[in-house]
Simulated scan of single mutants.
Amino acid sequence: MEQNYRSILVPVDGSKNAEKALEKAIEIAKRNNSSLEILNVIDTKQFTNNFGGIISISGDVVYSTFETVKQYLEKLKERILKDGFNNVEVHARFGSPRVVIAKDFVDDYPIDLIVLGKTGMSTVSRIFVGSVTDGVIRTASCDVLVVG
């Protein structure tokens, strides 16, 4: 039995693996006449400095990062629209990528497929913190397709 997907989420981060996942998600969305939700999660851990238990977040750095992400997402959307696929939206969220992708975003939108790239982290990093992809596979409440 073939699965039909109505709403597809593809998280992107500018990596080659994310680009491959985006291309695959576009193919699936076209075949299924689905909506495509493109998401970039800005990991808030990257903005913190911990000095003696005091956490500091620079507003200028956060704003600059958000503006860069917004421009990146708008360029992706523009490229997809030029290729003739019109049912696409872009989103930027702050938080833990694993949680936002697998839980928060799926709770807010009727996502029935997540298409994401395989991890780009080193083996050592995966051992200690795990990959976003592994976390999404384990916790998502919908189908997940990992593109290699």
Results as ranks from 00 to 15, higher is better:
Met1Glu: 15
Glu2Lys: 12
Gln3Cys: 10
Tyr5Glu: 02
Tyr5His: 03
Ser7Leu: 07
Ser7His: 13
Leu9Lys: 05
Val10Ala: 05
Val12Arg: 06
Val12Thr: 06
Val12Asp: 06
Lys16Val: 08
Lys16Ser: 14
Glu19Met: 12
Lys20Leu: 09
Lys24Glu: 04
Ala25Gln: 01
Ala25Ile: 03
Ile26Cys: 00
Ile28Asp: 01
Ala29Pro: 00
Asn33Gln: 13
Ser34Asn: 01
Leu36Phe: 02
Glu37Asn: 11
Glu37Gln: 11
Glu37Gly: 06
Leu39Lys: 08
Leu39Val: 03
Asn40Gln: 13
Val41Ser: 00
Ile42Gln: 08
Asp43Ala: 01
Phe47Cys: 07
Thr48Trp: 13
Asn49Met: 14
Asn49Trp: 13
Asn50Ile: 15
Phe51Met: 15
Phe51His: 14
Phe51Tyr: 15
Gly53Asn: 04
Gly53Phe: 09
Ile55Leu: 11
Ser58Pro: 11
Gly59Gln: 10
Val61Tyr: 15
Val62Leu: 09
Val62Ser: 06
Ser64Pro: 06
Ser64Gln: 10
Thr65His: 11
Phe66Ser: 15
Thr68Arg: 15
Thr68Met: 15
Gln71Val: 10
Gln71Glu: 15
Tyr72Met: 02
Tyr72Leu: 03
Leu73Lys: 05
Leu73Arg: 03
Glu74Gly: 00
Lys75Asn: 12
Leu76Lys: 00
Glu78Val: 01
Arg79Thr: 00
Leu81Phe: 11
Leu81Cys: 10
Lys82Met: 05
Lys82Ser: 04
Lys82Val: 02
Asp83Trp: 10
Gly84Pro: 04
Asn86Ile: 05
Asn86Trp: 08
Asn87Gly: 11
His91Glu: 11
Ala92Leu: 05
Ala92Gly: 06
Arg93Ile: 15
Phe94Asp: 01
Ser96Val: 04
Pro97Met: 11
Pro97Asn: 13
Val99Cys: 12
Ile101Glu: 03
Ile101Gly: 03
Ala102Leu: 04
Lys103Leu: 07
Lys103Val: 03
Asp104Arg: 09
Phe105Lys: 02
Val106Ala: 07
Asp107Thr: 09
Tyr109Glu: 11
Tyr109Gln: 12
Pro110Thr: 05
Pro110Leu: 07
Pro110Asp: 08
Leu113Pro: 00
Leu113Gln: 01
Leu113Asn: 00
Leu113Ile: 00
Leu113Phe: 03
Val115Pro: 01
Leu116Asn: 03
Leu116Val: 03
Gly117Ala: 07
Lys118Thr: 04
Gly120Arg: 02
Gly120Val: 02
Ser122Pro: 06
Thr123Ile: 13
Val124Lys: 10
Val124Leu: 14
Arg126Val: 04
Ile127Lys: 12
Val129Gln: 05
Gly130Ile: 11
Gly130Glu: 09
Ser131Gly: 07
Ser131Glu: 05
Val132Ala: 04
Thr133Cys: 04
Asp134Met: 08
Val136Gly: 01
Val136Phe: 03
Ile137Asn: 06
Thr139Tyr: 14
Ala140Asp: 06
Ser141His: 12
Ser141Met: 08
Cys142Met: 04
Asp143His: 08
Leu145Cys: 09
Leu145Thr: 08
Val147Ala: 00
